[in-house]
Simulated assay, not measured.
Amino acid sequence: MKVGIMGGTFDPIHMGHLIAAQRALEGLQLDRIWFLPASVPPHKQLSGGASASQRLAMVRLATQEEENFEVCEAEMRRDGISYSYDTIVELQEDFPGYRFYYIIGADMVQYLPKWHRISELAQRIGFIGLQRKGYVLEKETLPDFLRSKVELVPMPVIEVSSTDIRIRRAEGKPVRYTVPDAVARYIEENGLYAGE
Protein backbone atom coordinates (compact mmCIF):
# COMPACT_ATOMS: atom_id res chain seq x y z
CA MET A 1 0.00 0.00 0.00
CA LYS A 2 1.45 3.36 -1.10
CA VAL A 3 0.09 6.20 1.04
CA GLY A 4 0.61 9.91 0.50
CA ILE A 5 0.41 12.02 3.65
CA MET A 6 -1.05 15.50 3.33
CA GLY A 7 -0.28 17.24 6.60
CA GLY A 8 -1.26 20.71 7.67
CA THR A 9 -3.28 22.85 10.00
CA PHE A 10 -6.23 22.90 7.56
CA ASP A 11 -7.60 26.10 9.10
CA PRO A 12 -9.68 25.62 6.99
CA ILE A 13 -9.08 22.87 4.44
CA HIS A 14 -9.74 24.21 0.93
CA MET A 15 -10.00 23.18 -2.71
CA GLY A 16 -6.26 23.71 -3.25
CA HIS A 17 -5.49 21.00 -0.66
CA LEU A 18 -7.86 18.58 -2.37
CA ILE A 19 -6.54 19.26 -5.88
CA ALA A 20 -2.96 18.87 -4.63
CA ALA A 21 -3.84 15.55 -3.02
CA GLN A 22 -5.46 14.30 -6.24
CA ARG A 23 -2.42 15.33 -8.31
CA ALA A 24 -0.07 13.51 -5.92
CA LEU A 25 -2.31 10.42 -5.97
CA GLU A 26 -2.23 10.34 -9.78
CA GLY A 27 1.39 11.44 -10.21
CA LEU A 28 2.92 8.67 -8.10
CA GLN A 29 0.08 6.17 -8.55
CA LEU A 30 -0.60 6.10 -4.82
CA ASP A 31 -3.29 3.89 -3.31
CA ARG A 32 -4.52 6.41 -0.74
CA ILE A 33 -4.06 9.95 0.53
CA TRP A 34 -4.23 10.37 4.28
CA PHE A 35 -5.06 13.88 5.47
CA LEU A 36 -3.19 14.48 8.70
CA PRO A 37 -4.39 17.55 10.63
CA ALA A 38 -1.76 18.85 13.05
CA SER A 39 -2.78 19.37 16.65
CA VAL A 40 0.06 21.74 17.49
CA PRO A 41 2.16 22.32 14.35
CA PRO A 42 5.89 22.99 14.89
CA HIS A 43 6.11 25.81 12.32
CA LYS A 44 2.93 27.80 12.95
CA GLN A 45 1.26 29.58 15.80
CA LEU A 46 -2.48 29.05 15.81
CA SER A 47 -4.49 31.99 17.02
CA GLY A 48 -8.02 33.08 16.30
CA GLY A 49 -8.73 30.11 14.07
CA ALA A 50 -10.86 27.03 14.48
CA SER A 51 -10.29 24.60 17.34
CA ALA A 52 -8.51 21.30 16.69
CA SER A 53 -11.82 19.42 16.76
CA GLN A 54 -13.40 21.90 14.32
CA ARG A 55 -10.45 21.62 11.92
CA LEU A 56 -10.72 17.82 12.11
CA ALA A 57 -14.47 17.98 11.42
CA MET A 58 -13.88 20.14 8.33
CA VAL A 59 -11.26 17.71 6.99
CA ARG A 60 -13.72 14.86 7.47
CA LEU A 61 -16.42 16.77 5.58
CA ALA A 62 -14.05 17.72 2.75
CA THR A 63 -12.83 14.15 2.17
CA GLN A 64 -15.97 12.11 2.82
CA GLU A 65 -16.98 11.65 -0.82
CA GLU A 66 -13.58 10.63 -2.22
CA GLU A 67 -12.89 6.92 -1.74
CA ASN A 68 -9.09 7.34 -1.96
CA PHE A 69 -8.98 10.07 0.70
CA GLU A 70 -8.93 9.23 4.40
CA VAL A 71 -8.44 11.17 7.62
CA CYS A 72 -5.61 10.17 9.97
CA GLU A 73 -5.89 11.39 13.56
CA ALA A 74 -2.38 10.37 14.68
CA GLU A 75 -1.24 13.93 15.42
CA MET A 76 -4.58 14.97 16.93
CA ARG A 77 -4.24 12.21 19.53
CA ARG A 78 -0.74 13.29 20.53
CA ASP A 79 -0.15 16.03 23.09
CA GLY A 80 2.28 18.82 22.32
CA ILE A 81 4.04 19.69 19.07
CA SER A 82 3.70 17.23 16.21
CA TYR A 83 6.91 16.37 14.38
CA SER A 84 6.74 14.41 11.13
CA TYR A 85 9.43 11.99 12.30
CA ASP A 86 7.45 10.95 15.40
CA THR A 87 4.29 10.57 13.34
CA ILE A 88 5.98 8.37 10.74
CA VAL A 89 7.54 6.12 13.39
CA GLU A 90 4.06 5.65 14.90
CA LEU A 91 2.40 5.02 11.53
CA GLN A 92 5.06 2.51 10.46
CA GLU A 93 4.58 0.60 13.72
CA ASP A 94 0.79 0.59 13.22
CA PHE A 95 0.92 -0.17 9.47
CA PRO A 96 3.94 -2.36 8.73
CA GLY A 97 4.55 -2.84 5.04
CA TYR A 98 2.96 0.47 4.02
CA ARG A 99 5.11 2.89 2.03
CA PHE A 100 4.59 6.52 3.07
CA TYR A 101 5.27 9.73 1.17
CA TYR A 102 4.98 13.25 2.56
CA ILE A 103 3.28 15.66 0.16
CA ILE A 104 4.63 19.23 0.24
CA GLY A 105 4.85 22.19 -2.10
CA ALA A 106 7.98 22.22 -4.26
CA ASP A 107 8.84 25.60 -2.72
CA MET A 108 8.98 23.86 0.69
CA VAL A 109 11.33 21.10 -0.51
CA GLN A 110 14.29 23.43 -0.06
CA TYR A 111 13.44 23.63 3.67
CA LEU A 112 13.47 19.86 4.16
CA PRO A 113 17.07 19.91 5.48
CA LYS A 114 15.78 21.99 8.43
CA TRP A 115 13.09 19.45 9.40
CA HIS A 116 13.38 17.70 12.75
CA ARG A 117 15.49 14.51 12.39
CA ILE A 118 15.36 14.81 8.62
CA SER A 119 18.15 12.34 7.82
CA GLU A 120 16.38 9.61 9.83
CA LEU A 121 13.01 10.57 8.34
CA ALA A 122 14.41 10.36 4.80
CA GLN A 123 15.56 6.79 5.50
CA ARG A 124 11.94 5.87 6.27
CA ILE A 125 9.85 7.69 3.63
CA GLY A 126 9.81 9.58 0.35
CA PHE A 127 8.65 13.11 -0.41
CA ILE A 128 6.37 14.39 -3.14
CA GLY A 129 7.08 17.96 -4.17
CA LEU A 130 4.18 19.63 -5.94
CA GLN A 131 5.80 21.62 -8.73
CA ARG A 132 3.90 24.83 -9.49
CA LYS A 133 4.26 26.50 -12.87
CA GLY A 134 6.93 29.18 -12.79
CA TYR A 135 8.77 27.73 -9.78
CA VAL A 136 11.96 25.84 -10.52
CA LEU A 137 13.29 23.53 -7.83
CA GLU A 138 16.99 22.83 -8.06
CA LYS A 139 17.19 19.31 -6.63
CA GLU A 140 21.00 19.54 -6.92
CA THR A 141 21.00 21.99 -4.01
CA LEU A 142 19.59 19.32 -1.68
CA PRO A 143 21.90 17.17 0.43
CA ASP A 144 22.78 13.82 -1.17
CA PHE A 145 20.63 11.84 1.25
CA LEU A 146 17.51 13.81 0.21
CA ARG A 147 17.96 14.23 -3.52
CA SER A 148 16.82 10.73 -4.48
CA LYS A 149 13.97 10.79 -1.96
CA VAL A 150 12.09 13.67 -3.63
CA GLU A 151 9.71 13.08 -6.55
CA LEU A 152 8.23 16.09 -8.35
CA VAL A 153 4.62 16.15 -9.55
CA PRO A 154 3.13 18.98 -11.69
CA MET A 155 0.60 21.14 -9.88
CA PRO A 156 -1.65 23.85 -11.37
CA VAL A 157 -1.51 27.33 -9.89
CA ILE A 158 -4.42 27.71 -7.50
CA GLU A 159 -4.79 31.10 -5.89
CA VAL A 160 -6.56 30.10 -2.69
CA SER A 161 -5.22 29.93 0.84
CA SER A 162 -6.57 29.32 4.32
CA THR A 163 -5.44 32.83 5.29
CA ASP A 164 -7.42 34.38 2.42
CA ILE A 165 -10.50 32.37 3.39
CA ARG A 166 -10.27 33.58 7.01
CA ILE A 167 -9.86 37.18 5.82
CA ARG A 168 -12.86 36.90 3.48
CA ARG A 169 -14.98 35.55 6.33
CA ALA A 170 -13.82 38.32 8.65
CA GLU A 171 -14.84 40.86 5.99
CA GLY A 172 -18.25 39.22 5.61
CA LYS A 173 -17.51 37.92 2.09
CA PRO A 174 -18.59 34.47 0.85
CA VAL A 175 -16.11 31.59 0.73
CA ARG A 176 -18.12 29.37 -1.61
CA TYR A 177 -16.03 27.74 -4.35
CA THR A 178 -12.85 28.06 -2.27
CA VAL A 179 -13.90 25.21 0.04
CA PRO A 180 -16.20 22.21 -0.51
CA ASP A 181 -19.88 23.06 0.04
CA ALA A 182 -20.07 20.93 3.19
CA VAL A 183 -17.14 22.85 4.68
CA ALA A 184 -18.69 26.20 3.70
CA ARG A 185 -21.88 25.18 5.52
CA TYR A 186 -19.91 24.07 8.59
CA ILE A 187 -18.00 27.37 8.69
CA GLU A 188 -21.25 29.33 8.43
CA GLU A 189 -23.17 27.23 10.95
CA ASN A 190 -20.36 27.44 13.51
CA GLY A 191 -19.61 31.13 12.93
CA LEU A 192 -15.95 30.37 12.21
CA TYR A 193 -13.52 33.14 11.27
CA ALA A 194 -16.21 35.83 11.43
CA GLY A 195 -14.89 39.16 12.64
CA GLU A 196 -11.28 38.02 13.19
Rank of each mutant, 00 (worst) to 15 (best):
R176I: 09
K133A: 12
P42S: 15
L91G: 03
E171T: 03
D107L: 14
F10I: 09
Q64S: 05
F145C: 06
Q54W: 13
T87G: 05
E138T: 09
V157A: 10
L36G: 11
G126T: 01
M1K: 03
G7N: 15
R32T: 01
G129F: 01
S84F: 14
G4R: 00
F145R: 03
F127M: 04
E196P: 02
P174K: 05
A182R: 12
T87A: 08
F35S: 07
V3G: 00
D79S: 15
W34E: 06
T178I: 08
S82G: 07
A52L: 13
N190L: 10
G191F: 10
G16M: 05
Q92N: 02
V59R: 06
L112I: 11
A38R: 03
Y101D: 00
R32L: 05
G16P: 00
Q45T: 15
D181S: 13
I33E: 00
Y102V: 12
G134N: 11
A21W: 11
V3E: 00
Y193Q: 15
C72E: 14
T163P: 04
K139I: 15
G27L: 01
S161F: 06
P96S: 04
L36Q: 07
V179T: 09
H14Y: 10
V179K: 13
I167V: 10
Q92P: 01
A52P: 01
K173V: 06
E140V: 07
G48W: 04
L112P: 09
D94V: 10
F95G: 03
V71S: 08
C72R: 09
L61I: 06
I158D: 07
R117Q: 12
T9C: 13
R60S: 09
L28A: 02
Y111I: 15
K133R: 14
